[in-house]
């Protein structure tokens, strides 16, 4: 039985961390309608999971797990052709409206989005968590992999990212 107070508490919690939801929805869903679907689905699953929320974990850990699980499951439902189309559209659409952002920052962000878009679903999750400055321990908790594994994979991804930015500068 959910009360109005529960709903209010959930909404406050969700809005305090809505950046997480939007970032993941944008990373996995490239078209505006897909992102909207993902935001809805993440919100629904968070609401369903809320009564079981274990306060020994940070809210962000809990929400990252839900958002990533929803996004990965959603992305995997798309067939190969749709995924290819999404990746192509993503290259054009993946941005936030911000006229104040300077060109270099915008370009960096575009390159970063393109790079994230090309990663496998689980590597993508790892990359997002790395960019969020999460500790290896928290990343390991969210994904359920060892800290050593997290460190190794992040180092590999960072290397690829470095190469991508280097080739961008050359061009």
């Amino acid at each position: 039985m959910t009360t109005a107070r529960d709903k209010a508490a959930f909404l406050t919690l969700l809005n305090d961390h809505k950046g997480i939801i939007y970032k993941i929805a944008n990373a996995y869903g490239h078209r505006p309608e897909d992102r909207e679907d993902l935001v809805q689905e993440i919100t629904l699953q968070a609401w369903r999971s809320y009564p079981r929320y274990d306060s020994t974990y940070k809210v962000s850990t809990w929400l990252y797990r839900i958002a990533l699980n929803v996004a990965i499951s959603w992305f995997r439902k798309k067939d190969v052709r749709q995924k290819r189309e999404l990746a192509l559209e993503g290259k054009i659409e993946q941005r936030v409206d911000d006229s104040s952002a300077d060109d270099e920052k915008e370009e960096n962000l575009q390159t970063l989005h393109r790079f994230i878009g090309e990663l496998k679903v689980l590597d993508k999750a790892l990359m997002l968590l790395y960019l969020e400055d999460k500790s290896y321990e928290e990343i390991a908790e969210i994904l359920h992999v060892s800290k050593t594994n997290v460190a190794t994979k992040i180092s590999r991804i960072k290397q690829k990212l470095k190469q991508r930015f280097a080739s961008q500068k050359e061009n």
């Binding site: 809005n15 809505k18 950046g19 939007y22 970032k23 809805q40 962000l109 400055d133 930015f165």
Partner: peptide, 25 residues
């Protein structure tokens, strides 16, 4: 750090964007 800074700015923009409502659910 530069890359993460760009990402954080992007995150801040998203955080200040449209609020989430339970009507979504």
């Amino acid at each position: 750090e530069e890359i993460k800074k760009s990402w954080n700015t992007y995150g801040e923009q998203l955080q200040t964007g449209k609020g989430l409502e339970l009507s979504l659910v």
